[in-house]
Simulated scan of single mutants.
Amino acid sequence: MKLYITGTPLGNLDDMTYRAIETLRNVDVILCEDTRTTRKLTTHFDIDTPLRAYHDFNKGGVEDGIIEEMQDGRTFALVTDAGMPVISDPGFELVSKMQDAGLKYSIIPSGSAFTLALVASGIPSYEFTYFGFLPKANAKRRKKIQEIMSYEQTSVLYESPHKIMDTLTAIVNIDGGRMVSISREITKKFEQHVRRPADEMLQLLGHEIPLKGEFVVVIEGAQAEAIEFDIPVTEHVEALIKEGMTPKQAIKKVAEVRDLKKQDVYDEFHETKK
C-alpha cells in the first residue's frame, strides 16, 4: 500500500486504535492538516514519523509530488485534525489521483463526528443526508437551510459556535416544532447531546448548551403533507414554491406525494407558465 487513510480520535486519545498507531509508526511520511495538532498526537504515542502539511490551501500544489514519491516507493498516512480523513476535509482529490495512477491505498477506520451524533440523536437514522458545513454567505446559507428543511429524511450538518444561533433561528422560522438534536464535544470531558423541538432548543443555546466546541446538528425530516387532491397540480407546486422550495424541489415533492411521474408534473406546471 502507498497510502493509509488513517482515522484518529475525535478528542479522547484512548480511542486511538493499535492498528492506527502501528500504521503511523511504519509509514515514511504522515500527511496532516495542522502539523502542530498532529504533533501532539504523535508525541503522546511516541511516534517519530516526519509530518508534512496537506490542507485546503496547499493540496493543489503538492499532490502531484506526493504521487511521484509514491511511485518511487515511499509510503504515506493521511490524517485529519480529528476523526476520519476526507469527510469535510481535503483528501478525495489525492485518492482520485491515486486511482488514476493505479496506486493502492487502504483505510484505517475511526469514528466521524456526524455518525456518532446521529447515533446519539434519537432521531430516525434509516435514511439521512449529510451536509457538512453550511455555506458562509448569508443568502446561500438561508437557501440551503430551506432546502434541508424540505427533505423528508433526517439531515445532519456541522456548525460552529458563532453560527449555531443563526442556524437554529433559521430552522425555527421555518418550523419551530421540528425535532432537532445538538451534539458537542463528542468523546471529550464535557460531551453533550440534547434533543428538543427547534424552538425550545434555541432557548437553551448559550445557557444549558454552552457556545463552545464544534456542533453537530441532526434535524428530523419533514412530515409528509396531507394533500388536498382537489387542488390542481400546478397550484400545489406554486404553494410549495411560496413556502421556500425551488421549482425543481416542489415538482419532485408533488410527484412523490401524489404518486405521479415527475416529468408529468413538470410538463403540466410549465405548460401553464407559457
Rank of each mutant, 00 (worst) to 15 (best):
K189C: 03
L51S: 02
F57T: 11
A53N: 14
F133N: 01
V95Q: 06
Q203F: 02
I209S: 11
K274M: 06
T234L: 07
T154K: 10
R25N: 12
P197K: 06
I209Q: 01
M201A: 14
Y126W: 00
D81M: 08
K104C: 01
T6W: 07
T43A: 03
I87D: 05
A250M: 08
T129Y: 00
R258M: 04
S112T: 15
Q249N: 08
S125T: 14
R196A: 13
V257I: 13
V62T: 13
P50R: 05
E22F: 00
P85L: 00
A139V: 09
H44N: 05
Y158N: 00
S181V: 03
G206Y: 10
H162Y: 11
I209M: 04
M201S: 13
G221C: 06
P85N: 04
E200P: 05
P247H: 09
G11K: 02
F128G: 04
K248S: 11
Y158H: 07
N138K: 14
L118N: 08
F269G: 02
F131D: 01
S181Y: 04
I174F: 02
T246G: 03
E185F: 06
I30K: 08
K140V: 00
R184N: 00
I21F: 06
I251Y: 14
A198S: 13
I5T: 07
I47Q: 05
E268C: 00
G132H: 09
V237W: 06
V237A: 06
I148Y: 00
I174P: 10
D166I: 01
M165C: 10
K248A: 12
D28Q: 11
R19G: 10
D259E: 15
Y130E: 00
V265E: 10
F57N: 13
A117R: 05
L41R: 07
V29D: 06
N173F: 02
G7Q: 13
V233K: 02
L41C: 01
E22R: 15
Y151F: 15
T167M: 12
V218M: 04
K104E: 14
F128P: 09
M70K: 05
G83C: 05
K2A: 12
H207A: 15
Q203M: 15
S88Q: 02
T154D: 09
L157I: 12
V29R: 09
D81I: 08
E152S: 12
L94V: 01
L168M: 15
V218C: 08
D56I: 03
P232A: 05
E147P: 00
V27Q: 08
K144R: 13
G60R: 07
G73S: 04
Y266V: 05
